[in-house]
Design a protein around this nucleic acid. Structure first.
Lengths: 209, 209, 209, 209
DNA sequence: CATGAATGAGTTTTCATTCAT
DNA sequence: GATGAATGAAAACTCATTCAT
């Protein structure tokens, strides 16, 4: 379940990275607007700033663009979280901090996440597992924090409960993006974060040992 | 924001309903398997049990099929919930009952919900509002129950909090379907329901007046 | 090595036959002029008298057109020969008659045969055997006549020699078509036929028992 | 109808010859495997051992490669025949020798000849005459030998008959290559040669004066 | 009402050729 | 002279939609 390589005709690695970055940037914009299926390869090339011929020097199939986009989004989310979360400390404050950071990140990348959730199923069978693996990785970050808290006696949760709460947090972050049509009318990000954390801690602390 | 009418060439209302039911049934099966975009109108017609010509006697555009499918799913979910929820009683037991029923329904229609979540964005701008309205309606059912509980002094929540908790419940129901690849490996529906209700009530009851 | 079926979307067998006949006729004209590879599917459709969409109702791949063309040519040549050759009589006169008939047929279908010889190698591996089988069938007709002559004591040939002479006759027929740029400048069909028969019989009768 | 010049950007004649030899060698290998149309210029360049840019320093169009290949094949066949045939002696033995040599050469270059016969028609109108001229030249070699034999009274043939027999010999040589799928299953080269010569002489000697 | 053959605009993908480095 | 990235015209093929029967 390792990273699927998308082959390029062009040999210069630096150039490949540069062109693919252009491509991803253009494609995300396009996919947000009209979705993967309604975007043509010509439009993707144009949005990337080069010709259709050049596009195909860097991918093999249209679907590769989607994979590259999904991969890039996850990579970026994962990296942002890495740097803003302390997975080891294991106290309430650190949990609050993690959730807050996560929600901020999800707010920043909401467009991209929306794209991923609507289009990921269009990935062929061989690309999907890698994407799901990435998800599990991210949920695992919350599990780790929660587990540390339990170890530190902040509250008491079974392994099953840890996993579920981690999932809930994860989904509530995504929810802010893909239900924005309603949530972002009702709350600011700060309000949303505060209320969700309050709920969460209410549930957890009721389980204090 | 009223129900968008999909026009049919055929006049006989009974027949229209019958044919569209066939169509929706076939289409859902197809969309689950390959998604809306990858399903052709020919395939939809075949899955429905009639010819491509006949299909177009009952819709105007391919997209109408998607709308009809989405509408049908909401209608069916909504109806099932109507009959299994008591929106007025307003006690903890009734809330637990509502959540349980909702999760059961979402488990039963998980395929359909999956389709909706992956394809709804393919609806054109004029069909989307109606679908979103339906969502709001369903969330409102949980809001109502929660509001009744607050009125009855079961726990204390601001209007903002009510709305958010309702959304959380709603999303946790959908989550069971669209994250089934992981959740349904970790839990049975009963376990999932029990754990989520426990979490929920933990949060709520910590707010008891 | 049985007949490869080319699938059509259209169900009406009569129509399929009719449309494919149009298609083959147009395609042969086109292939003679510019070859298979240089002919586009749009041109083929146009030459057949219908749209590109319609073309693809009757074939699956461009290569199917080539197969259909080759098949049709063989079928037609084979059928013409069947009716003009007496495989059983086994005398010199009958051999002369067979060669003459064969050359006449090859003269009539020289365009088609030219196409086949230049394009048959473009058939994919699964269609080629069928085409070769057809060739063997036709060569076998001459073998049969020769064998009968030998049985009747007209001349004496080993089985190896029979096979080779049959091949020579077969190739000399094709030669009239695919070397027409020179042969048809030097001889009329009648002259060509007479000279070749003379040569042939000279060789055979020198082996009279 | 003189040799068509393929222009090169590179001035150094030695280098041009060297690079084109590389090119032809690679291209023949490629064309045997997949034919001219299915081979891309990139593949040709790669097979030749240099870059696509370099390829275009030595040709103007893809078709030039085909012309160069055809020309090279003829040149090589012609040269081999020159050195192994005695066109002047004019006796039966010398004819047998010529046919035998020719068949040996055709056996050695059968792959190349196959390529030529399948692809020559892809040459544009201006290259074709040169190629045909080469053919006539080769047939003329047999005509010359036959004519000498007639002059020497080995057998008696009209000019028409000489031309036809020369063509027959020529085509029987090619036949060994392009009908190898069947002939080379039935005979060894030696058997094939012996049988064809026997046939040939049978025909000719029956015309002895 | 039902059918399915016909249509052609629109899509992905390839590849010969050019040209700046 | 050599390179290979860039180009875009052109190719095969698809599929929503129509309409005569």
């Amino acid at each position: 379940m390792s990273k699927r390589e998308v082959p390029a005709s062009v040999k210069d690695e630096k150039l490949v990275k540069k062109r693919r970055d252009q491509m991803i940037k253009g494609a995300v914009k396009l996919f947000i607007e009209k979705g993967f299926h309604r975007s043509t390869t010509r439009e993707i090339a144009k949005a990337a700033g080069f010709s259709i011929g050049t596009l195909y020097e860097y991918i093999r199939k249209k679907e590769d663009v989607l994979y590259l986009v999904c991969d890039s989004i996850y990579e970026s989310v994962h990296q942002r979280l890495q740097t803003s979360m302390d997975l080891e400390r294991g106290d309430i404050e650190c949990l609050k901090q993690a959730v807050t950071s996560y929600f901020v990140v999800m707010d920043e990348v909401q467009d991209e996440v929306l794209v991923m959730y609507q289009e990921a199923k269009s990935l062929t069978k061989d690309a999907l597992p890698y994407v799901l693996e990435k998800e599990i990785e991210m949920v695992a970050m919350f599990e780790k924090i929660l587990r540390r808290c339990v170890e530190n006696g902040e509250f008491s949760l079974s392994e099953s409960e840890i996993k579920l709460v981690a999932h809930n947090i994860f989904v509530q972050g995504q929810m802010w993006g893909f239900r924005r049509w309603i949530l972002q009318k009702l709350y600011t990000l700060e309000e949303y974060t505060e209320l969700q954390i309050e709920n969460l801690l209410g549930g957890l602390l009721s389980k204090k040992v």
